[in-house]
Design a protein around this nucleic acid. Sequence first.
DNA 1: TCTATTCTCGTACGAGGTACGAGAATAGAG
DNA 2: CTCTATTCTCGTACCTCGTACGAGAATAGA
Lengths: 238, 238
Amino acid sequence: MTGDGKSGAAGVDPEQLWLRPTAHRRGRRPSFSREAITAAAVALADAEGLEAVTMRRVAAEVGAGVMSLYSYAPDKDTLLELMVDHVSGELPVADAPSGDWRADLRTIAHLQRAHMLRHPWLPAALSTHRVPGPNTLAFLEHALAVLRPTGLDGAAKLEVFAQLTAFVAGHVAHEIAQGAASRSPDRAAAEARYLATVAADGQHPELAEALAAPGRPLSPEATFTRFLDRLLDGLAAG
Amino acid sequence: MTGDGKSGAAGVDPEQLWLRPTAHRRGRRPSFSREAITAAAVALADAEGLEAVTMRRVAAEVGAGVMSLYSYAPDKDTLLELMVDHVSGELPVADAPSGDWRADLRTIAHLQRAHMLRHPWLPAALSTHRVPGPNTLAFLEHALAVLRPTGLDGAAKLEVFAQLTAFVAGHVAHEIAQGAASRSPDRAAAEARYLATVAADGQHPELAEALAAPGRPLSPEATFTRFLDRLLDGLAAG
DNA sequence: TCTATTCTCGTACGAGGTACGAGAATAGAG
DNA sequence: CTCTATTCTCGTACCTCGTACGAGAATAGA
């Protein structure tokens, strides 16, 4: 369950997860690998959504028995954690900070957006607290370097990064929902009819007007850029 | 599980859900009510988190048989929808827009934050697309009225509201995660140890410095206000 | 070769969502 | 009042899911 709420007790021990030795010493040789299992899970999530990622499906995809997965990850929640860090490895980190932290942050945000659009399950997966794995940490390291010219203290820099990521995730989640809605015309039509009915009831004049005068539709990308720039403008002042 | 086989929520027909007649005509008199069932589910989620909300638990809480719930909501997803709109009824809408849309928006954001802290499952529940019910629409109507002085077109106003809500949800989710972490000292300590180990590996100088010089810790409320003001500053310019 | 170790995976259990359909309650028709 | 159509109640059952258990297989070192 990816459900949030007060279930903070459920969690993964980061030391056990990311710092455990990976070498093989004695005993039977492993038939699979964390990498392969994680990659299969990611492929499944990309293709069919997070809810298609079940231990049985992943095992079948890898050619393993279901319970064999538990030699590589102690539970499904951990597998999700592995998936998140796995795809974070796609984020390029090579280019050094330019010194213009606003431009660099903008670049980072656009990278994250593209990344999340490529893996639409990411916003949902990020909504619960995750301990950063090596790939995530590499990206974080880069973001902190970018923020160096701001002169913010450590906690503030971490906070800025967290907020930026949350902003991007929120936007992309919205973007995906819109896209999904327009991809099922019946649902979209039903929703439009419903809103029209509500707008016509006289109790919602502002909504009626907003729906009547929608303005020219902006591309999701344009909207994203607009809000991002506003947020960065604001950060510049703070 | 949604019948269309595609990923994502968007499985509820809004007309069937929000516009269906509520009057009782013929046949056996209902023993329960949508209200009571929804309220029980909300109470459960508030007390024990979203994952405690199962059809069996809710039914037990109400004193009904499990399958009786399905006379009031066609499936669990719909029940979640009802829960979201139910708690939206707590949001005060009475006060008219002051004409200062920035101040009004700030008030709205703070209301939403308090609301989500009161119902910590809300950010997660909002992360999937929801069709606004009557209470949500009343609040939206108010927000649109507040945004009237901006002169934005309909789509833009809706977009601003969505972004603001997403921002608040993202922040509160983070806030809750932090709070949950500090409420389980073992986890927090393990995570701190892990990050310290990573920071000491020489590969993450920026992280090491950020952790070494954290600065004075800000209250979550202060951080929220700071970022919110920045976002509003930005919106003012756009 | 023997043994300790490590991995594989069939079986099984409990929890969760919900389809089915029999029974119970009720309003209106006669 | 009786009959019937309607509407709600809910026990039973099925399927999917995560995962505990433990027996068997493979392997490295003694």
